[in-house]
Design a protein around this nucleic acid. Structure first.
Length: 645
RNA sequence: GCGCCUGUAGCUCAGCAUGGAUAGAGCGAGGGAUUCCUAAUCCCUAGGUCGUAGGUUCGAAUCCUGCCAGGCGCGCCA
């Protein structure tokens, strides 16, 4: 479709450029609002009419008279106040789409793209907010790979931060546990830490004298002193494993886990610091409130200067982030060591190390970097980019993309359902921010468990005779579809106020609706095979024969056929649009609309029962085409495809 | 105070990049469809001053400005 439009635009421009004052960019083909008006539309007669001081409609007609017959276009007409609308040769169009299935017309534009997402502090279980992050980042990765890009997924691990220290404080001071006692904990470890973290946080808040011990813990893990350090190591690694398992449940994967501890021990910051000083990107404040700090000048006069190194010589969060961002672009002149963290059949997840290890693939050195981080960090991400600019890495600053999105909050109803106690002040609000520190949130695994349980009971009801393993597998796929679609259907700037009833819904605009549509299509092919012996070979024969007797379709069937096929042909444009705008709700809504169109078609036109062979053939090809597009759409969204439901 | 984001149907949200033809879905409400490929479906009905006031334009939900309302950020926390 994309290619078809571009060719047509070029051809039309070529025909008209001599006769009219036109720029090639003005010839832009769009879609008509309604099928009966035609398929493609040109709006340029309006601009041209203005330039030439003429009536748009009359001018449009004149232009049409000048146009030769166009390949693939059956009819051209003036519409409305002066649009030029094209009616395509449906048979030719469909036949070409079928033949070009599988050969993507998209092409990569970057050397290597790095996506950083998930980034959960390794001190507690993952919650719904993290699921949104992971779903967005993972979908971006899948779409970019589909486009042909070389993509590396990184999940940054802040294993030396205060959050981890809080949990260590909880273990050592509140529960008086040593490492071997911690290892004996039988409960789900990330859940155990979830509660302990909340407990330790509130304890530390009400016992300011305990802060001293916490600072000591923090210092010891940064300097690598046991037992605090080995406990930190144990906790973070156990939690990372739990997170990877949770994300594995929804099909989210990573290539590399870069750790804060490695950045620290390999002195990434020191290198970045000398670069920043050398290029005068930061300076030492000699007076004012920030005296003794290294600060970055604001871009605008009205903004405050940003502290990068505190007066005690320690670096701030944003400073470390600048160092990490430099490394991602291969600009730091330093690298991590790497070792495998998890090895599975054909996939290894690597983790950074601060000491030399064996052979590993090459990481980092991206030409473009996406950081998937929620919108509360807009300002800090801006500072990171500003850091690159001050270092005169303008190209890299341009290619540092903050994939910003709104958070997931909790509705008062959800909180009540979880039996979470909230303060009177919080109760007044329409929604509450998820807070790991307060233990306020819906744990990712809990939500997934509930989705699976609900899906299982629905499967039981519909397919009581299936073996229990099959049922479980289907329920898993359904829960996966429900969750992934839910996380994608909202625009990224839309705050999701989480509600169980809405998230657990399997009807209407939901993942299971999409999955169900595909199940129906597959079911038709299964029955075709069972009842008529129509198999893959027959399908291929049908595809290559190119025989389509479109004239056998009634006028209304031709119109319904075209409605769904023409829409399906726009898939690649939707993917590109989603990548460009980082708005995967487009892809989600597009897929949903495609399913709606198919389901309407399905109710009117029977395939198995159709007596007319020629009509039947067209219908088979139609649903085959939709199946191919839909399967691709679902896989880009990370939605699994059950064979039955 | 400054910066960013949001305001569209009873509810939840698309549409805004690149202005275009009659503003769309889902949920909820009411009605209907199953001797026929899975009813997790489909069809019909009701429901809209696109926050508000201006501006630009042949044309504005979409672009610009003001105002109102809400959220987030602006720390020698991470």
């Amino acid at each position: 479709m994309l290619e078809f439009k571009r060719k047509l635009e070029k051809k039309i421009y070529g025909e008209l450029k001599e006769k009219y004052p036109l720029h090639s960019s003005e010839i832009e083909i769009s879609y008509t609002p309604h099928q009966k008006m035609g398929d493609l539309a040109l709006a340029f007669p309006f601009h041209l009419a203005k330039k030439m001081k003429r009536q748009p409609r009359e001018l449009a007609q004149e232009i049409i008279d000048h146009l030769p017959s166009l390949e693939g276009v059956e009819r051209v007409e003036v519409a409305g106040p002066g649009f030029i609308n094209f009616f395509l040769d449906r048979k030719q169009f469909f036949s070409r789409r079928l033949h070009s299935l599988g050969q993507a017309s998209l092409s990569p534009e970057e050397e290597k793209i790095i996506i950083e997402h998930t980034n959960i502090n390794p001190n507690k279980a993952a919650h719904i907010g993290h699921l949104r992050n992971a779903c967005l980042g993972d979908t971006l990765g899948r779409c970019l790979k589909y486009k042909g890009e070389n993509v590396e997924i990184q999940n940054y691990i802040d294993d030396t931060g205060v959050q981890v220290a809080d949990v260590i404080f909880g273990f050592m001071e509140l529960e008086k546990k040593n490492l071997s006692q911690i290892k004996q904990i039988e409960e789900k470890f990330d859940y155990y830490c979830w509660d302990l973290y909340a407990h330790a946080s509130s304890y530390l808040e009400s016992h300011p004298e305990a802060q001293k011990r916490k600072s000591e813990i923090l210092k010891k893990i940064e300097e690598g002193i046991d037992p605090e350090n080995e406990i930190a190591h144990y906790i973070s690694h156990q939690i990372i494993k739990a997170h990877l398992k949770t994300m594995g449940r929804i099909g989210v994967n990573y290539d590399l886990l870069p750790c804060e501890s490695s950045i620290l021990h390999l002195k990434f910051w020191e290198k970045a610091f000398s670069l920043l000083k050398e290029k005068k990107a930061i300076f030492l404040a000699g007076e004012g409130v920030n005296r003794g700090c290294w600060v970055m000048k604001p871009e605008r006069e009205t903004e405050k200067e940003k502290i990068i190194v505190r007066s005690d010589g320690t670096v701030t969060y944003v400073g470390k982030d600048i160092a990490y961002q430099l490394w991602k672009f291969g600009l730091l002149e330093k690298d991590f060591y790497y070792k495998p963290f998890i090895k599975e059949d054909n996939k290894t997840i690597w983790i950074s190390s601060s000491t030399p290890e064996g052979k590993s693939p090459s990481f980092g050195k991206g030409s473009q970097v996406y950081n998937v981080i929620d919108s509360r960090q807009d300002y800090l991400q801006k500072i990171v980019v500003q850091g690159l600019k001050s270092l005169k890495y303008l190209a890299q600053a341009e290619k540092s993309i903050h994939f910003s999105y709104e958070m997931v909050a909790l509705s008062p109803k959800s909180l009540k359902e979880l039996n979470l106690i909230v303060s009177d002040e919080d109760r007044e609000k329409d929604f509450l921010e998820v807070s790991g520190r307060k233990g306020l949130g819906v744990k990712a695994d809990d939500l997934l468990d509930r989705l699976e349980a609900k899906a299982l009971s629905e499967v039981e009801e519909r397919n009581p005779d299936l073996p229990s393993e099959r049922k479980k597998e289907i329920a898993h796929k359904i829960s996966n579809g429900a969750l992934r679609y839910f996380m994608l259907k909202f625009a990224r700037n839309s705050l999701i106020v989480f509600d169980f009833e809405e998230a657990l819904n399997f009807e209407g605009e939901t993942g299971p609706y999409l999955q169900y549509t595909l199940v129906r299509i597959n079911s038709i092919f299964r029955k075709l095979k069972e009842k008529e012996g129509f198999d893959e070979k027959d399908l291929q024969a049908l595809l290559s024969s190119g025989e389509m007797a479109m004239e056998k379709l009634t006028e209304s069937e031709l119109s319904d056929f075209w409605n769904v096929v023409f829409f399906a042909s726009q898939f690649e444009e939707e993917v590109l649009h989603s990548i460009r705008s980082l708005e995967f709700s487009h892809l989600a809504k597009y897929s949903f609309s495609l399913c709606q169109k198919f389901n309407s078609y399905y109710h009117v036109y029977s395939i198995l029962a159709e007596k007319n062979k020629e009509v039947k053939r067209i219908r088979i090809l139609t649903i085959y085409y939709i199946k191919e597009v839909l399967e691709r759409a679902l896989s880009l969204m990370g939605i699994l495809q059950p064979e039955r439901m």
